[in-house]
């Protein structure tokens, strides 16, 4: 199977806005002002960040309304102590007027539009895909409600905008004042056929999945999106059996990035351990899985790995690549 490489769209940064102390919103437009591809709510783009000590390619949800022929895309990036290099790059280096490269949109977190009712649960920066989906839900005339939890009023990105446009369908929770989303209470009385969507910290995602399972919801009615950051770790060696190559993966780069650096382009898409596109067969080696794609059983089998985010516990990994 021949796989296509991601289309690259050259854009200019036409806006950088600090919306909270730790969140910035970036606006991208095409150089020639032509429209960008239309997209559906829940889509993400991969932003390429060059010129630093290394190239970062990170996925970010599109938060602008999914209108026809959008003239601009907007994403929001949070930077904190645990932020990966890319988020830091976006916060510290990207200025209005900069030229950057983005991928076309892809959607790993689509609405199930056949469902009559939709419950959206966001924690912190996880609000971004819902900003786009709320427009789509409204446009399609579907019933919905949004639950948005944040630490404090200062960090409540887009709260006022949401209150103004979707106020009657929205509930806010300030965890700094001991207000927390209660997944069981939210999901308990929903009509049959309702779908729930969660985007936020791992703990919140897990709590929603567990509450739904406890209440007897079908697993496929609960959706979550979480892009993993490629975590740093100890260096290891990747042996590419079919290409007859050996690649050293340094502490601060992913296996995918190191392989690309060596001039080989494995198939990949989201770069956040979600889409499954970069899965490689492991012939030898002990894998430290960091993705959200493989099941726990598949991870235990140790026979494949997502090279965008997973690393090796062993000094050496042999891939069928």
């Amino acid at each position: 199977m021949i796989l296509s490489q991601q289309a690259k769209i050259p854009v200019r940064v036409t806006g950088v806005e600090r919306v909270t102390p730790s969140i910035k919103t970036f606006t991208f437009e095409r150089e020639d002002s032509a429209p960008l591809p239309s997209f559906s709510g829940g889509s993400h783009i991969v932003v390429e960040m060059r010129g630093g000590e290394r190239t970062y390619r990170n996925p970010y949800s599109l938060m602008s309304p999914p209108e026809d022929y959008p003239s601009a895309y907007q994403i929001s990036v949070r930077c904190d102590d645990q932020g990966r290099g890319g988020a830091q790059y976006m916060h510290e280096r990207v200025r209005e007027g900069d030229e950057m490269t983005i991928s076309g949109p892809a959607n790993l977190f689509p609405l199930t539009v056949t469902a009559p009712r939709h419950v959206l649960i966001a924690g912190g920066i996880g609000i971004t895909p819902f900003l786009a989906q709320l427009h789509e839900l409204r446009q399609r005339g579907l019933a919905y409600e949004l639950h948005y939890q944040y630490r404090d009023a200062e960090g409540a990105a887009f709260r006022d905008r949401l209150a103004a446009r979707f106020g009657d369908q929205t509930r806010f929770y300030e965890s700094g004042r001991d207000q927390y989303v209660d997944p069981t209470a939210i999901l308990a009385d929903q009509p049959l056929g309702t779908h729930a969507y969660v985007c936020g910290p791992a703990g919140l995602t897990q709590a929603v999945h567990e509450a739904a399972a406890e209440l007897g919801w079908p697993a496929r009615n609960v959706h979550s999106e979480e892009f993993a950051a490629p975590p740093p770790g100890k260096p290891f060696k990747v042996v590419l059996e079919r290409s007859q190559r050996e690649v050293e993966v340094p502490a601060n780069a992913s296996a995918l990035e190191a392989i690309e650096e060596a001039g080989i382009q494995p198939s990949c898409s989201c770069r956040g351990g979600s889409c499954g596109q970069c899965e490689q067969t492991v012939l030898e080696g002990d894998i430290d899985h960091n993705d959200h794609f493989l099941s726990d059983e598949a991870k235990a089998r140790n026979s494949s790995m997502m090279i965008c985010v997973s690393r090796a516990r062993s000094d050496r990994v042999v891939l069928d690549l």
Binding site: L3, F39, G104, Q277
Partner: peptide, 16 residues
């Protein structure tokens, strides 16, 4: 199985 996984990731503007 392989074809489905591939198609679920099909991107706008990159037909196959």
């Amino acid at each position: 199985e392989r074809a489905l996984k591939y198609l679920l990731n099909l991107r706008v503007g990159e037909p196959v």
